[in-house]
Deep mutational scan, measured.
Amino acid sequence: MDLSALRVEEVQNVINAMQKILECPICLELIKEPVSTKCDHIFCKFCMLKLLNQKKGPSQCPLCKNDITKRSLQESTRFSQLVEELLKIICAFQLDTGLEYANSYNFAKKENNSPEHLKDEVSIIQSMGYRNRAKRLLQSEPENPSLQETSLSVQLSNLGTVRTLRTKQRIQPQKTSVYIELGSDSSEDTVNKATYCSVGDQELLQITPQGTRDEISLDSAKKAACEFSETDVTNTEHHQPSNNDLNTTEKRAAERHPEKYQGSSVSNLHVEPCGTNTHASSLQHENSSLLLTKDRMNVEKAEFCNKSKQPGLARSQHNRWAGSKETCNDRRTPSTEKKVDLNADPLCERKEWNKQKLPCSENPRDTEDVPWITLNSSIQKVNEWFSRSDELLGSDDSHDGESESNAKVADVLDVLNEVDEYSGSSEKIDLLASDPHEALICKSERVHSKSVESNIEDKIFGKTYRKKASLPNLSHVTENLIIGAFVTEPQIIQERPLTNKLKRKRRPTSGL
């Protein structure tokens, strides 16, 4: 017993010596996670971090007073192994002897410093981030199933929210409404489509400006004509009531908005009720001829604005009016007729031209339509002016008669200019590109209106002035400009410049 007691005391002394060697000089306990400095002193990692955080910048070693920084600290694995072995020896000594260790306080702390507990403390002390800490805590505590279930439920809930957000973003663009038309193969669909197009076009005519009305009406008319041609002859009974509906809707729209509806009346003529396609083609032919005449008058307007600064050229074209007008009339009417003589009366030419125009518009179905009313009214106005011209010709002399006839021709041009508003800008460009020769010939008609105004002003003063002067240069210039014009009389060319000069002198006297 005595020997055993001596041996136990010796073992205890050895353990105490080893414990003092492996103590931390700051906390005076076994080193936890030993860290060595540049001066080869060993301290606990937790104690050194606490010391360095007390001051900004480098701190001093507690043993040798040298500078220490966080970067200079290094882990010493050898001392950590020695500490672990010492703890194992102490545990074995207690089991063999059955005696508690003399320094129970220190031993209890040593026992608490088992490797499992050290790992837990290291995970908390090290600044490795929240995710690494959570992982280490889960690994160190596998015995708690409640914690695992809560963490898994949190992760699953987070994943569910992310997935639901993604699915919502994908589903939202798919919620856009999609309209699908289910059509049938019955023959009544074509008639319904035609009526739908006509009503939609009328609404567009009321909303859209004048520049786009003609294009819309032309497209709708083409669509309706194609649909009529596709149907068989057996379905004509269905077409006639639908066309009557079209007429009623167009008349109502014309009564409500007459000014807006006139812009599309000329282009919509071939959508009118037709028994066969031949009647629609004839109407299209007549409309094309009318559009040609209207576009020519538009060309004359532009030329008149350009040549208004040259009064000499405008005056020299006075007698070329009849010849150029004959050529335009021959090209406007498709019928083959002989040219009228140069010395014939211009009023007779106008009456013949009106007689040619009237039969074209005397179809029984055309008179029933609303768009032809505008053309009939313009023709009636022309006839009224010609009836007035006959009365004026009986009273005035030959020279005054010529000037009045020219004035009436200008009035006719004004009437025809009203129809110019109905034609589109695209048709003007096509006419100029296809028929430049006709445009040059028809330019002379509009330029002549300037000389007509001068004659009217001469009649106000009650006299006409003449001068025997020749202007050969002007006649040559005008002959080169206009290709299809005829030779003019030299006496009238000489008379016109004198009248304008005298007018300039006598205007201030009349004002006084």
Score class of each variant (00 low, 15 high):
Q19A: 09
L165W: 02
R170N: 14
N132L: 03
Q19S: 13
V14D: 01
L73T: 07
L63A: 05
Y130S: 10
K50H: 15
D185Q: 14
A108C: 10
V83M: 05
P115N: 03
L118C: 05
N66T: 05
N113M: 10
E141K: 06
I89P: 01
E111K: 09
R170L: 11
R133Q: 08
A5V: 09
V122R: 04
R133L: 07
N103P: 07
Q174I: 10
E181A: 03
N53I: 13
T97G: 01
L147K: 12
N144E: 10
N132H: 15
L51R: 12
V83G: 08
A5C: 11
I171T: 10
Q126I: 05
L6T: 11
R166L: 07
R163F: 11
I31A: 06
P142E: 11
N112E: 02
P145K: 14
Q174W: 04
I124T: 09
K175M: 07
Q19C: 13
Q174Y: 01
Y101D: 07
K56C: 02
S123N: 15
G129F: 00
V11K: 01
L159Y: 09
T231G: 00
P25R: 13
G129I: 13
S157R: 11
E121V: 02
V14T: 00
K168F: 04
R71W: 12
G160K: 03
F107N: 11
Q81V: 06
Q94V: 06
R131L: 12
S146M: 13
Q169I: 03
E100L: 09
F43R: 01
N103L: 13
S80A: 07
S184F: 07
E181R: 05
I15N: 00
L82R: 00
L22D: 01
E10G: 04
I26D: 02
Q148S: 08
Q172I: 03
K110G: 07
S186R: 09
I171A: 09
N113D: 11
D120G: 08
N235G: 14
Q126G: 11
S177L: 05
K65R: 07
S151C: 07
S123K: 05
D189C: 09
L95R: 04
P34L: 05
S104T: 09
P58L: 15
T69W: 12
L147S: 06
P145G: 10
E141V: 13
T69C: 15
N53H: 02
G183Q: 09
A5L: 04
N103V: 11
L22F: 09
R7T: 04
N66D: 11
K55G: 12
L22R: 00
C39H: 00
Q172K: 04
K135Y: 05
E121K: 08
L165G: 08
S127Y: 03
K65G: 14
L49I: 07
I21R: 02
I171C: 03
R170F: 11
T150F: 14
Q172T: 07
S177E: 08
E29R: 12
E188C: 06
Q54D: 15
E121L: 03
L28D: 15
L159C: 06
Q174F: 06
L6Q: 12
Q60W: 14
K70S: 02
C61E: 00
F79R: 01
F93L: 12
P58M: 11
N113T: 07
K20H: 03
D40Q: 15
G57T: 02
K55F: 15
P115R: 12
D120P: 08
G160W: 13
E181G: 08
P58T: 09
N106S: 03
T176H: 03
F107C: 02
I171D: 13
P142T: 11
K55S: 01
G98I: 00
E141W: 03
E100W: 06
N112G: 04
L182D: 07
M18G: 00
P25S: 05
S146A: 11
E100D: 02
R71K: 14
F107Q: 15
V14M: 01
I42M: 15
L30V: 05
C39P: 00
A92I: 00
A92C: 09
G129P: 12
S72L: 11
M18Q: 01
T77I: 15
R7D: 08
S104N: 08
E100Q: 02
C27R: 00
K50P: 13
T176A: 06
L3Y: 06
L82E: 00
I124K: 08
F79H: 15
K55I: 12
T69D: 02
Q172V: 13
L159R: 06
I21V: 11
T190Q: 08
M48E: 01
G98P: 00
S140Q: 09
S151D: 07
Y130G: 07
C47L: 03
Y105N: 06
I68G: 01
S127P: 14
E149A: 08
R133S: 11
A5F: 15
S146L: 13
K32Q: 02
V35P: 00
Q54P: 14
E75A: 01
V8A: 12
L73Y: 14
V154M: 04
S151I: 12
V191L: 11
N16K: 07
P142R: 06
S72K: 12
E143Q: 12
E85D: 00
V14S: 09
R170A: 09
L165F: 04
V122D: 04
T167E: 10
M128Y: 12
S151W: 12
L28C: 14
L95D: 06
S104M: 01
G183S: 06
I26P: 01
D40W: 10
V122Q: 09
G129A: 10
S59W: 06
P25A: 11
K135L: 10
A134F: 08
E188W: 12
Q126S: 13
L28R: 14
K45L: 06
S153G: 11
S140I: 03
E9P: 04
L159Q: 15
S146F: 15
N53Q: 14
K110N: 10
L99P: 01
H41Y: 00
L95T: 15
I171W: 01
E10R: 14
E116C: 01
I15V: 05
L30M: 05
V299W: 04
R170C: 11
L159S: 14
L137F: 03
V14L: 03
K32D: 00
K65C: 14
Y105A: 10
R133F: 00
P173V: 06
L95G: 02
T176K: 01
S127A: 06
K65Y: 00
L49V: 00
I89S: 05
I89C: 02
R166G: 06
T190G: 08
S104V: 09
E111M: 09
L6K: 02
R166I: 08
K20S: 10
L51D: 01
T161F: 15
H117T: 11
M128D: 07
V83P: 07
Q126E: 06
L6G: 11
R163S: 13
P173G: 07
F107P: 07
T37Y: 08
L152F: 14
F93Y: 01
E84F: 00
A102I: 12
K88V: 09
L165V: 10
D2C: 06
P25K: 11
I171M: 04
Y130D: 08
Y101W: 01
